[in-house]
Design a protein around this nucleic acid. Structure first.
Ligand SMILES: [Mn+2]
Ligand SMILES: [Mn+2]
Ligand SMILES: [Zn+2]
Ligand SMILES: [Zn+2]
Lengths: 143, 143
DNA sequence: ACGCAAATGCAAATCATTTGCATCTAAATT
DNA sequence: AATTTAGATGCAAATGATTTGCATTTGCGT
């Protein structure tokens, strides 16, 4: 993911090319972690990038609206998380021990959605799936 | 669900039997809707039951801790919703048009969880699944 | 009826997120 | 290159759901 491609995605969405937008896209495109707004702010600060927290929020909103990022909400967590949108349908495995969030690039629901559609009359436009449990490491610490 | 059984669930959990706890359990046990704390407050008010909103929250917390109710969070909604816990594993179908939430008493993930367990080394303790789309009625209004 | 721990009411605090408004900047236009 | 202006940003204050501290009340065992 070159800086040029990021700028192209920003401009392509009809947005102004600003350093903070590039910074945020850059950070998220380099990880598959889910990162909160506050954590984005903290990580930028660590790199001496002085963005205002409300600009972080506004930037995230706009980038989500333009499908450059995804907003993800996790059961039991009050803040939202963000990830770079790679246009790869996926779900999450979430450790209740260490709060690690692991993406799963696999979907068990494709067939089921068809079934649901015919049974319910609903037009299904998407779904969300999360698995909860304990990762290898945390499992060991469960006494 | 008789009032006596509700009182038994409360006492069985080691809690004091109070009118508000019974009122809230009673309300939720009579519907399969997901209801927010504020909406619970409003519905009680309509029946001239004058509970304080913070008591609603505290009661919900305790009843969730004691597995008498379930707390449910919905993608894109900031408040939590509550349902009576019937100990029946289920998921939800959510209409993006009218925000109707329909429980689905069926689970497409039982086999998949096993697979995931062996592949990831995770101990899986639960999952969450939601389907989003448009119900019959709202589909018609989609131009 | 008495005593105490638990439950409640009320007001204030908290926390993530949003907003109003003044100022600044990207980038289109002269 | 200077000018213009819509859109972006900073800052402080507002918001909305939820939580908390503390005084008062209530359920329930004695
Ligand atoms: Mn899927
Ligand atoms: Mn299931
Ligand atoms: Zn873990
Ligand atoms: Zn609908």
């Amino acid at each position: 993911m070159t800086k040029e491609r990021m700028v192209n995605r920003i401009i392509g969405a009809g947005l102004k090319n600003t350093k903070y937008r590039v910074n945020i896209i850059e950070m998220l495109s380099k990880t598959d972690e889910l990162v909160s707004a506050q954590e984005i702010y903290n990580r930028l600060l660590k790199k001496s990038i002085f963005i205002n927290l409300s600009t972080v929020y506004r930037t995230l909103d706009i980038l989500v609206d333009n499908k450059i990022l995804n907003r993800v909400t996790i059961e039991g967590e009050k803040q939202s998380f963000y990830e770079y949108n790679r246009d790869i349908h996926h779900h999450f495995l979430i450790c209740r021990g260490c709060n690690k969030i692991i993406p799963i690039y696999d979907c068990p629901l494709e067939d089921y959605e068809q079934k649901l559609k015919s049974e319910s009359g609903f037009v299904i436009t998407g779904h969300r799936v999360e698995f909860y449990g304990y990762c290898d490491e945390c499992r060991k610490n469960l006494i």
